[in-house]
């Protein structure tokens, strides 16, 4: 039943990666939510961060307040680990959509069926959008369960807002990976480029929070839009979300154009 069309087939292809990334991200979040009260009693994380000064900012812990669960999750997970996992998942999957079929040689058969190149890319993209959302929902459920079990206060709407930004960040990098793979047919290059870009953008954003002169380049980093508005405290920022969504859509459109024009690898 999952072999009806390219979309459902891709959902099928992504089911295990999605399961594992959901379990990994969700498990970590649930674990932190569960242990937060115990941890907060033993360690005064705010004091540690204070001592670390700028170094804490480099680790992305600039905005969190470690005395609340949501601030703790921000410092421990949302600043670095969750975006790294989400971006790697989305870029990893998206890079295989066309380039994976090309390198495996299955593209010749697939595109000899009445499936346009555009539809191929769009249906596969829809599958990774769903997969990213499944992972985000899993994180939310694990966090809520962990918070409930440890009787911690967790504003569920703010958490949902941050997860929405996380999904958008993942999809933006996923679309970049998709465009590179659609243009080159090279999956490795696509993953490498997207993940490398993520690291650079992360560092730019983190350094810019310390070094004032970097302020001018900060808007170039997608991380600026991801956590810049502090969705864990303020809820979703429509302008920031729009920038991430626009980047995703723009690179998807670019991927469609580039893939449509190209000679496919034999």
């Amino acid at each position: 039943m999952l072999l009806r069309n390219v979309f459902t087939k891709t959902v099928r292809d992504l089911r295990w990666p999605t399961f594992w990334v959901s379990l990994g991200m969700g498990g970590m979040t649930g674990y932190f939510a569960l242990l937060f009260p115990t941890y907060a009693k033993i360690v005064d994380l705010n004091a540690i961060l204070e001592k670390m000064g700028p170094a804490a900012k480099l680790m992305g812990a600039s905005l969190g307040d470690a005395s609340t669960l949501i601030g703790f999750l921000h410092i421990e997970l949302f600043s670095m680990i969750l975006p790294a996992l989400m971006v790697t998942y989305a870029a990893g999957m998206a890079s295989g959509f066309t380039a994976g079929e090309e390198s495996r040689g299955t593209i010749d058969v697939l595109l000899s069926y009445p499936v346009s190149r555009r539809r191929l890319v769009l249906e596969k993209t829809a599958a990774v959008v769903i997969g990213s959302m499944v992972a985000a929902v899993a994180v939310w459920i694990f966090a809520a369960a962990g918070a409930a079990a440890s009787a911690s206060d967790l504003p569920w709407d703010k958490l949902a807002a941050a997860l929405a930004m996380l999904v958008l960040l993942g999809l933006a990098f996923g679309a970049i990976a998709l465009a590179v793979s659609a243009a080159t047919g090279n999956r490795g290059a696509a993953i490498g480029f997207a993940v490398g870009l993520m690291v650079v953008m992360y560092l730019v954003d983190a350094l810019a929070s310390i070094v004032d002169s970097l302020g001018v380049v900060r808007p170039l980093s997608l991380f600026r839009y991801y956590m810049g508005g502090d969705p864990l405290r303020n809820g979703i920022s429509i302008p920031d979300a729009s920038v991430l969504a626009a980047v995703a859509v723009a690179f998807l459109a670019l991927a469609l154009v580039l893939f449509e024009r190209r000679d496919l690898a034999a």
Binding site: L3, R4, N5, V6, K9, D13, R104, G105, T106, D108, V109, L110, S112, Y113, P114, V115, A266
Partner: peptide, 24 residues
């Protein structure tokens, strides 16, 4: 069309692959 270097989705059985292609 049957390509010269025929590559099939390795994770599917022959019957699943034929179902998929028939649907397409």
């Amino acid at each position: 069309y049957v390509p010269g270097e025929l590559s099939l989705y390795p994770e599917l059985t022959g019957s699943q692959l034929l179902t998929y292609l028939a649907n397409l």
